[in-house]
Design a protein around this nucleic acid. Structure first.
Lengths: 172, 172
DNA sequence: CAAATAGTTTGGAATCTATACAAACAATGA
DNA sequence: TCATTGTTTGTATAGATTCCAAACTATTTG
């Protein structure tokens, strides 16, 4: 049921600001993914996280800015926000990488995108349309809804725009 | 194909601001609904339009503010925006009503909501969950996607949160 | 009919998000 | 080491949404 990634979630109460209420003090306990609504980040920030996830390891702010079509100063600022929220670590003049939490969160972002795209493709949208459409609204679709959809589709492992992982289900 | 309401669309190029390119000069010609992307309004403004549509005729700004949980001054301001964009007519100290275009647009907003809710309910979400979820992201789902989904579902006339109309299909 | 009351709008201000430009700064390679 | 390239900081703008307090209008009541 609570299926997509996020087997563990920790130590980030303070990070999600107004969106979360509790503070967790350990990093290794398995918390139910209820702790994440999936609505913590703005569409733009979701884009950043998905890009970082796909790019992997240390990513230059300039790569981000050119990819997302914004000024380098803009990406630096936004990365600053994400760092403040604990999703990324920023080494000035060197690059950005996802924190452990950021990695998990980003994986959910990517899975959500893929699941929603796959869903839309079942309604006659082309892969490109489905992907584009999902990108527009995915930031506003809750984790719980995504879980329902995923389950209902039989936990697919492939979407029109990439693989889907089901970490806590044991399905790669 | 191009199915939900909006058999005609007119005279509002200037109104949709940066989102539309052309200006139409007649009000009674039938334009394909391509003219509307469905992405013209923010989620909040979509809420306003849906509420006005359901309430019908002249609605007091205070009704809106209490319904949407904002200060009366806020609803007055937002209604001002919608009036400027041509969706509503505001008679100060009296009330607000949808313009002809606003009426058509609002009907699309309601249909979109209902179609998306129905879709979600097919994935195991309860009526309430589906409705709530749809409300969160519907403003970012394009008319063309909604049309595909609607068609793919066989142009249903009933959703989990209300009737669905298919004006240009001749289905009530 | 005029005044009190209830309802509505305006003006001002704050916040949040996203953005770019220019200037300062850091890293790297010649 | 210094010039070039890449990155960050500081400043500023814009749009969306919000509320508060003050001004205003309409309606009810005496």
């Amino acid at each position: 049921m609570s299926c997509l990634i996020f087997g563990l979630y920790a130590n980030l109460g303070f990070i999600f600001g107004q969106n979360s209420k509790r503070i967790y003090t350990t990093l290794s306990n398995a918390y139910p993914m209820q702790e994440i609504t999936g609505l913590e980040l703005s569409p733009k920030k979701v884009e950043y996280l998905k890009f970082l996830f796909k790019k992997g390891d240390l990513v230059r702010t300039t790569d981000i800015s050119s990819q997302l079509g914004v000024d380098p100063s803009t990406s630096t600022k936004t990365i600053g926000d994400l760092a403040e929220s604990g999703y990324v670590e920023h080494i000035p003049y060197r690059g950005v990488r996802l924190t452990e939490i950021g990695q998990q969160y980003a994986e959910f972002m990517v899975n959500r995108h893929n699941i929603l795209s796959l869903m839309l493709s079942h309604y006659g949208l082309s892969s490109e349309e489905a992907c584009e459409e999902a990108s527009r609204f995915e930031a506003f679709v809750s984790k719980s809804a995504v879980d329902s959809i995923c389950k209902s589709m039989g936990h697919p492992t492939m979407s029109v725009c990439g693989k889907i992982k089901h970490v806590s289900c044991g399905i790669p």
